[in-house]
Every structure is written in C-alpha cells, then in structure tokens.
C-alpha cells in the first residue's frame, strides 16, 4: 500500500495495550505512516472501539487486565461483526509455542521493532498471510 492510497482512504487500526508508552508510541508511529489509529487499554475497551468504528486491523498485546488478547480474539471470532478482522499479537512474555486463535495472523515479540510491525501490517492489509 502506498502513502497515497493510505492518504485517500486511511485504514483504521486499533492498537490495544495496557502499557502506556507502548500504546502511545505505536499509535504515534502508525499515525505518521498515514493510518487512522484508535487505542484501547484492554480487551473490554477494544470491544467498545470495535463496536463504534469499522476497524481494518487489530494490534493487541497478549497480557492485559480485565480481558487479555487471547480472550479478545475469541470474543471477536464469536461475533460476526468482527470475526473477519485480522489480529496481530504482541507480547514480551507470551509463549510462542502456545496455539493461537485463528484470527491472529502474526506475532511480534516486545520490545517491538516498528519496521517489522509496519511490514506485517502492510502485508496483512494487502490480504496476504504472513510467511
């Protein structure tokens, strides 16, 4: 996706993280790349955002209070409004060998490297599964 395409129709990306700086800075960086970014501090808030605004992609932390990333994914899969929205998992502690919900198309370890995340976002939004 080119910058121009994004300028014309910026995709809405929902970033979910209970860690303040991770949330703010990832949102800042994605905004700078032309995305429209919404934020939520946990799974419960994320479901509220999803209900309010059409979302193209969710980037969520795994470990969060109230509702963690895994539970958020399962809730999304159980709701026909959200079950086709792709998800990217991020975590500093998540065991990578644990099976993930099927809407999780990519996983990035924290500390995140933005260029890797951005590449993943573009790939997923293009409709290609990550390699």
């Amino acid at each position: 996706m080119t910058r121009r395409e994004m300028t014309e129709a910026p995709p809405n990306v929902l970033v979910v993280d209970d860690e303040y700086a991770s949330l703010e800075v990832l949102a800042l960086l994605l905004t700078g790349e032309g995305f429209r970014v919404l934020t939520a501090g946990d799974g419960v808030e994320a479901l509220e955002r999803l209900a309010e605004t059409p979302i193209a992609l969710v980037i969520t932390d795994y470990k969060m209070p109230k509702m963690d990333g895994s539970e958020l994914c399962l809730k999304m899969l159980g709701d026909p409004r959200f079950d086709r929205i792709p998800v990217i998992f991020t975590s500093a502690t998540y065991r990578q060998d644990v099976p993930r919900p099927k809407n999780v198309l990519a996983f990035f370890s924290k500390p995140l490297l933005f260029q890797d995340v951005l590449t993943g976002v573009h790939r997923i939004l293009k409709g290609a599964r990550s390699p």
């Binding site: 065991r95 060998d97 996983f107 990035f108 890797d116 390699p131």
Partner: peptide, 10 residues
C-alpha cells in the same frame, strides 16, 4: 514476524 502456524520451541 512469527508465522502462527509454525510454533517455535519455547
């Protein structure tokens, strides 16, 4: 990026 279908040993 990690492919979710190719889990890595913990």
């Amino acid at each position: 990026m990690i492919d979710t279908n190719q889990p890595r040993p913990a």
